[in-house]
Design a protein around this nucleic acid. Sequence first.
DNA 1: CACTACCGTGTATCCCGTACACACAAACGT
DNA 2: ACGTTTGTGTGTACGGGATACACGGTAGTG
Lengths: 254, 254
Amino acid sequence: MKNMPREGSGRPRTTLDLLWGTGDGGTRGPRPTLSPEKIVQAAVEVADADGLGALSMQKVADRLGFTTMSLYRHVPGKEPLIELMIDRAVGTPPELSAHPDWRTMVEAWIEALWNRYQQHPWMLHVQAGPPLGPNQLSWLESLLTALADTGLTDDERFVISLYLNGATLGIARLVSDAEQVTADRGVPAEQLSTDYSEAMGRLIDSDRFPVLTSLVRSGALNAPASATGRAAPDYEFGLRRLMDGVEAYVAERT
Amino acid sequence: MKNMPREGSGRPRTTLDLLWGTGDGGTRGPRPTLSPEKIVQAAVEVADADGLGALSMQKVADRLGFTTMSLYRHVPGKEPLIELMIDRAVGTPPELSAHPDWRTMVEAWIEALWNRYQQHPWMLHVQAGPPLGPNQLSWLESLLTALADTGLTDDERFVISLYLNGATLGIARLVSDAEQVTADRGVPAEQLSTDYSEAMGRLIDSDRFPVLTSLVRSGALNAPASATGRAAPDYEFGLRRLMDGVEAYVAERT
DNA sequence: CACTACCGTGTATCCCGTACACACAAACGT
DNA sequence: ACGTTTGTGTGTACGGGATACACGGTAGTG
């Protein structure tokens, strides 16, 4: 029985083990030069620099000075690697205890998450699955803690957390996509909304799209994004409405 | 000058032309058997069935009974094709005029969009860019119309539309990802949240994650998703808070 | 010291997107 | 009527990417 496939090809068992650092098996053979951590770090750097579409095992290995196949000794494949990247890129949640009330805590939480998304825009395009990594769970824990003294039930706090998380994700994606795509087409950032409303003006039939037409003509599309160079205020306005609603609900419950 | 590359290889000029059906140039040569519409339809079917990752020009061509390369006569590439797919998959917005007030209109709008996302989950994972297709613009027009008699300014209505759109997108993605990923791992839908909270229970240290631990122990994670077999109520609750906030803002303005 | 478990590598396979050149077909200009 | 022009579907070919598999070497274990 010499040529049987060497079963259980080394260390990297499950993605969960990688995420939590468990399952570090026996210390036999040559000391590894590579490690999952280094690989994940390099992968995140590649994705940050060139986007998720440009992420390949080759590029990651090159950046580390190793062969493509060497990565597979430490990470079971590309998809698991991406899961690890997410947990690393999202990092640790902010410290919220200094804030006076739950509302400012939640706002700070969302702003921090928003910033993370800005730093690693590729996170907005991965199929995420339920959070299971230590960092992702820390974010959830953090948000739930912020809602602790609202007097809401466990269910309600959980659902609200889910919604806040999702809303932040969605807005960040919308904004980031708009910037990215138009940037890829070689449009300078200042002209973004100008060009957009101009393109729309050309396409739109004022019979079929009366409201949009008047909106374009009034120039409302130009103002918000170019005012600060960022669409950030957009999400803050919407967020504030959401918080008002939550606050009213909390007040009603007590 | 015989062997110059036959410049301007046929009809499919820009993605915009495809989206709006403009630019259908001279009717020379053999009548085309294929058309952009058929291609887009087939592509949507493939993505619906096997997900975005399994979408390839091969599969689309096979489904139509043509060669891979034949597609490129009608569609400039894969990415433009996906943009067309989005506009087709999102379809036309719902009829809202029957609803009594703006709030129920907006709720109906969101529910309709939510349903579209359920029908075509791959839409949640594409880089979208600003909406330029006729159907996408119709959705925007529809939502803006619903907000018409709120007395808000153009800016405000636009920003709120953006936020509602983004929030719906984000929640739908969170929920769909969770379902999808766990389904890929062979977990039957009923066990989803059970397995999830069980996995979390194994991973979590009650010192580092006190709130989560108590949440898992109380079983709050099991209830919401399994109650209806869908996580739909989650988003409705959060949505209601958001609408309350908007309503308060509207009232304050008048 | 032989054995075993594991490291990093090289090679090979399969799939994907798409450039390019062909053979043929239908309308146009003369 | 007939060459010219423009477009159609196809076959072939290339570069790149994920990953299975077998190899030679290495460091603890018995």
